[in-house]
Amino acid sequence: MFDFTLATTPEICVELGRRLRARRLVQGWSQIELAQRAGISAGTIKNLEKHGRATLESFIHVVAALGLSDELSDIFLIRMVSIAAMEKAERANRQRAPRKASR
């Protein structure tokens, strides 16, 4: 099992590319077919699968084409574990970051 907490950024990128490749193969699609369905180039698919490199937009196009959009719904959600965490999460719902103190 891949441990994201111990992995470097390049390792995580490669792992995500590997997982998308596996899902493509389960669908029985070639890289060209996935590229057409995602509306991006086959080179982008190759780069994503081999090196884990793509723009966020291209990554999302691939995820959507593979029918995995629902997998993104829980990403980066703030998990409520205590009343203090709930209060902190409520404060985080602000639209702007707190201002730095002026000197």
Rank of each mutant, 00 (worst) to 15 (best):
F76E: 15
L25R: 15
R94K: 07
A7Q: 15
I83N: 09
R79D: 09
R96Q: 05
G17P: 08
I12N: 00
V63N: 05
E49L: 01
K88A: 09
Q36G: 01
I45E: 01
V26A: 14
L48V: 02
I12W: 00
S102V: 13
I32S: 08
R24I: 02
H61N: 15
S58W: 04
Q95K: 10
S102H: 07
F59G: 01
E71V: 10
A84N: 10
I75R: 04
L68E: 12
A101R: 13
E71R: 14
L77Y: 09
R18M: 02
I32Q: 12
R79V: 09
R18Q: 04
R23Q: 15
L68C: 06
I32W: 07
L20V: 02
S69V: 05
A84R: 14
V14S: 01
S69E: 13
D74C: 13
V63R: 02
A22H: 04
L34A: 07
A89V: 13
N47W: 02
V26S: 08
A38W: 01
C13G: 00
E11A: 11
G39E: 10
L20Q: 03
E57N: 00
G43T: 07
L68G: 00
R53E: 15
F59T: 10
Q31L: 00
R53P: 12
A35K: 04
R96C: 04
I32G: 07
R99F: 03
L56I: 15
A89H: 15
A92C: 05
A22V: 11
C13Q: 13
K46I: 01
R103D: 10
L48I: 01
G17M: 09
F76T: 12
P10I: 06
R91I: 14
E90K: 08
M1C: 05
R19Q: 07
R99M: 11
S30N: 05
I12G: 00
N93V: 14
N93M: 11
I83C: 04
L25G: 03
V63E: 05
K46D: 06
H51I: 04
Q27N: 12
A35E: 06
C13N: 08
T44K: 03
I32Y: 03
S41L: 08
